[in-house]
Amino acid sequence: MPFLSAPMWHSNRTHRFRLFVLLMGLIVGFFACPSPSSATEPQADLSASISRGQQLYQRACILCHGKAGDGDGPDAFYLGAYSAPRPRAFTEGEYKFRSTPSGELPTDSDLLETITNGIPGFMPFFSSLAESDRWDIVAYIKQFSPIFQETDKRTPIVLPPGPLPPNRESINRGHELYTLLDCEKCHSPLAIAPNGLYEQGELRDRRELDILPPDLSKPASFKNGHRPQDIAQSIMTGLDGTPMASFRETLPRPEDIWHLVNYVLSFSRPQ
């Protein structure tokens, strides 16, 4: 029996050992082998996109936004060197037009939207460029500030269901809110001429330059767009780098945003 049992015991040990090695090999192999969607491929795509974006930037954007992306290109002087708004300084990672909360970075779609639609009176629209070209520019301008790499999540705010019909009741509620929220301190009761804080020289942008509130009777001049959802977004998120604050957590009721939008749009509608 000892003669027979020893080899059997030995073969069991060997068998177990082989199984163990095989199992470990499978585990190590599973984690070591690159998966078909390896991380290197998107990286290659991204650097190609940045490179294409750079070429487009140097043709279309550099004159205002500058070679270094600091908003100080040669043509920026003609926009008014001593008044706001100045071209965006991508190096500082602060953006006015966002779907994200106050103080957060814009989403890539927000950047694409600004490139596509431009800014009335200040930045041309680039909707004639292929969409893939505009995405390449988005990839390139994000390179100017390390903050995009440091930030993992950029979550847009959610607007309440709307817009609501611009009936008399809604506009009246919007008027109440306009007074309650002190909108007239910057935008004036008639919404046409700036008054209050601007006339006192106390409305300044992040560079300490005087900044003029928009004429609310001319929605086509609204820099962040004039559709109800654009105006709602500007009020809810605020425009970072300007005195325009976020009212997302200030409105007494969620649907109030649409009443306020209806009131703002009523300035440009025949009464």
Partner: peptide, 13 residues
């Protein structure tokens, strides 16, 4: 504000 960016700009009732 931080040195370069808004941290938060909000209105309080």
């Amino acid at each position: 504000r931080t040195k370069k960016r808004a941290f938060i700009n909000v209105v309080l009732l």
